[in-house]
Measured scan of single mutants.
Amino acid sequence: DWREIAKLAEEALKKQQPVTVNGQTFNDPNEIKKLLETAQKAI
């Protein structure tokens, strides 16, 4: 669910920690931002 992904990505950016989505881990803040943008577009 994109809403859940957006929430996870936002928290990861705030806490500056990696986030795992669908078994894929994102460590890079730039990648997390991209993930968040993608999720927000999909909602």
Rank of each mutant, 00 (worst) to 15 (best):
A9Y: 07
F26V: 06
A39W: 03
K15I: 08
I32F: 01
L8K: 10
Q24D: 04
A12D: 00
W2V: 03
K34A: 11
E10F: 10
K7S: 10
N27F: 14
L8M: 13
K33R: 15
V19K: 00
A39R: 01
N30F: 14
T25W: 09
D1K: 13
D28W: 15
G23E: 03
E31K: 05
K41A: 14
F26M: 06
K15V: 07
E10A: 09
I5V: 07
Q17T: 13
L36R: 02
D28Y: 15
D1W: 15
P18I: 06
I32N: 01
Q40L: 15
I32Y: 01
A42D: 03
K14W: 09
Q16N: 15
D1L: 12
Q40S: 08
L8Y: 04
K15Y: 13
V19G: 01
V19P: 01
Q17M: 13
F26N: 00
K34I: 12
L36S: 02
N27M: 13
N22Y: 06
N30C: 10
A12R: 00
V21L: 12
E10V: 08
K14Q: 12
R3N: 12
L13I: 10
V21H: 05
L35D: 01
K14E: 10
I32H: 00
Q17K: 10
A6L: 15
L13D: 01
I43N: 05
L36C: 02
N22A: 08
A9K: 00
V21Y: 09
T38N: 10
N27P: 03
E37V: 06
A12V: 00
N30G: 12
N27I: 12
K34P: 00
R3G: 12
K15M: 12
P18L: 04
D28E: 10
W2Q: 03
Q17V: 12
K41D: 07
L36E: 02
Q24V: 15
P18K: 07
A39P: 01
A12F: 02
L35S: 00
W2F: 05
R3V: 14
K15E: 09
E11S: 07
L8T: 05
Q24K: 14
T38I: 13
Q24I: 15
K14M: 14
Q17C: 04
L8D: 04
N22G: 09
F26D: 00
K41Y: 06
V21W: 10
Q17L: 12
G23M: 04
I32M: 03
I5K: 01
E10Y: 11
A6R: 11
N27A: 06
D28R: 03
T25K: 08
Q24N: 09
P18M: 07
A6Q: 08
A9P: 00
W2C: 05
K7P: 00
E10H: 06
I43L: 10
I43F: 03
D28V: 03
P18G: 12
D1C: 10
A12Y: 02
G23V: 01
E37R: 07
A9D: 00
I32K: 02
K41E: 10
V21K: 02
V19T: 03
E4C: 07
K33M: 12
N22R: 11
K7M: 14
N30P: 06
N27Y: 15
I32C: 02
G23N: 05
T20F: 10
T38G: 06
W2E: 02
E31D: 14
E4F: 09
V19S: 02
L8S: 05
L36V: 04
K33L: 14
I32G: 00
E4P: 02
K41I: 12
F26E: 02
A9F: 08
D1T: 14
G23K: 03
L35Y: 01
I32W: 03
N27E: 08
V21N: 00
D28M: 03
T25S: 06
E4Q: 11
D1Q: 11
T20H: 09
W2K: 02
E11L: 07
A39C: 04
I5L: 07
A39K: 02
A39V: 05
Q40R: 15
K15D: 07
L8I: 11
E4S: 07
E37C: 05
K33C: 06
A6P: 00
A6F: 14
R3Y: 15
L35P: 00
G23D: 05
K14D: 08
T25Y: 10
L8A: 12
A9W: 04
A12M: 03
W2H: 04
A39Q: 02
E31R: 03
T20Y: 10
W2I: 03
A6Y: 15
E31S: 09
T25L: 10
N27G: 05
V21Q: 01
V19R: 00
V21I: 15
I43W: 03
E37T: 07
A9L: 15
V19A: 05
Q16A: 12
A6G: 04
I5T: 04
T20D: 04
D1G: 14
L13T: 02
F26G: 00
E4W: 11
L35H: 01
P29E: 10
T25H: 08
K7F: 13
G23R: 04
L13F: 04
Q40G: 04
Q40K: 15
Q24A: 05
K33E: 10
K41H: 11
T20G: 02
P29Y: 12
A12L: 02
R3D: 09
P18F: 06
A42G: 06
I5Y: 03
D1F: 15
L36G: 02
Q24M: 15
I5M: 05
D1S: 15
N27L: 11
K34T: 11
D28T: 15
E10I: 13
A12K: 01
L8N: 06
K34F: 07
A12W: 02
N22S: 07
L8V: 08
E37Y: 07
Q17G: 10
A12E: 01
E10T: 11
A9M: 09
K41G: 08
I43H: 04
T25V: 14
K41N: 13
Q17W: 12
K14S: 10
K33G: 07
D28P: 06
P18Y: 04
P18V: 06
F26A: 00
A6H: 07
I43G: 05
T25I: 08
I5W: 05
T20S: 10
A9E: 00
L13C: 02
I43K: 03
